[in-house]
C-alpha cells in the first residue's frame, strides 16, 4: 500500500525554519514506521537524519512524535497509524537536525538522581540474597530504556527545564525500591523539591507514552509516598 509520510525537516546548515516535506513510500501493513523512514533515507532523500539502531524497541534511539503521539518508530506498525503518517521530533529539546534532538539535558537529569546501586557494606563471597518478592518490587522500572518518550510528553517538563522529569524519577525508583540499596536518603533528598518528584502533576502522559509499558505515574507516586513516609518504612512494606 502507498503510505504518505509528512516529515518535519530542519537542517541548521541550510534552513532558517523547520518545514514539512512529503514522501510517498510503498509499504506493507505490517511494516514498521521505521521501515518507511529508512526507505526514504536509502532511496529517496539521503539528507534526512534520525537516530535508530536495534529496530525492535530495545535501544531507545527512535522515540519521535508519530501522528502527534510519542512512540518508537521501530515499534509502531503502519497498520497502527494508517496511510498518512506525520512525523516530528520530540518536543522540548533543541533540534540538532530533522528528527535528531539534543538529549544532553535529559541525561543530565538522569545522572542527577544517582542512578547506581549505593551500598558500601562489604559484599558476601557469593551473591547477596534477594527474595523474588523483593525483586518484583522494582521490576517494572528496571525495564526503562531511556528513550525519553515520557519526559518529552510531560507538560511539567515542557514548562520547567529544571524539573528532572518522569524518566529520571523512574530511574530513581529502580534503586529506591531495591532491597540491596542503601542510598535512598541521598536520592530522595535530591527528589524532594519542586524540581523533583513534586514537579509531577499526575497528568499520566508519561504512562501513555512509555513504549516499555512501565507504569510511570505509579512509580512517581510511590517515590512521592516515600518522600512523605521516609524511605525505609515504604521499602519494607
Amino acid at each position: 500500500m502507498k503510505v504518505r509520510f509528512d516529515i518535519k525537516r530542519y537542517n541548521p546548515e541550510v534552513d532558517e525554519h523547520p518545514h514539512f516535506e512529503k514522501y510517498d513510500v510503498e509499504l506493507e501493513e505490517t511494516d514498521r514506521v521505521l521501515d518507511g523512514l529508512n526507505e526514504i533515507r536509502w532511496r529517496i532523500d539521503g539528507t534526512f537524519a534520525l537516530r535508530r539502531s536495534c529496530e525492535h524497541g530495545i535501544c531507545g534511539s527512535d522515540a519521535m512524535r508519530i501522528n502527534g503521539t510519542n512512540r518508537l518508530a521501530c515499534k509502531t506498525l503502519i497498520k497502527d497509524v494508517g496511510e498518512d503518517v506525520r512525523v516530528e521530533p520530540l518536543i522540548g529539546f533543541p533540534v540538532v537536525k530533522d528528527l535528531v534532538v539534543d538529549q544532553e539535558r535529559f541525561f543530565a537529569h538522569y545522572r542527577s538522581v544517582l542512578p547506581f546501586l549505593i551500598n558500601d557494606e562489604p559484599p558476601p563471597a557469593r551473591e547477596r540474597l534477594q527474595s523474588p518478592k523483593e525483586r518484583a518490587r522494582f521490576d517494572d522500572t528496571t525495564k526503562c530504556i531511556l528513550c525519553g518518550a515520557c519526559t518529552t510528553a510531560c507538560p511539567s517538563a515542557w514548562a520547567d527545564e529544571k524539573f528532572v522529569g518522569p524518566a529520571a524519577i523512574v530511574q530513581a525508583h529502580r534503586f529506591i525500591f531495591d532491597s540491596r540499596d542503601r542510598g535512598s536518603a541521598e536520592r530522595l533528598a535530591r527528589l524532594s523539591g519542586r524540581n523533583g518528584a513534586w514537579g509531577c502533576r499526575t497528568i499520566f502522559n508519561c504512562t501513555r507514552a512509555c513504549p516499555r509499558g512501565i507504569e510511570v505515574t505509579k512509580a512517581i507516586a510511590e517515590v512521592k509516598r516515600s518522600l512523605i513516609m521516609g524511605s525505609s518504612e515504604e521499602r519494607s512494606s
Binding site: R126, E127, R128, Q130, P132, E134, F138, R180
Partner: peptide, 20 residues
C-alpha cells in the same frame, strides 16, 4: 564475575531462596 555483577547491582531474577 557474575557475583561481581550482582554486587554492582545487576537485578538478576531470583530463586525462591533468593539466589540468582
Amino acid at each position: 564475575m557474575v557475583y561481581e555483577l550482582e554486587h554492582m547491582g545487576l537485578p538478576f531474577s531470583r530463586t525462591p531462596d533468593g539466589r540468582i
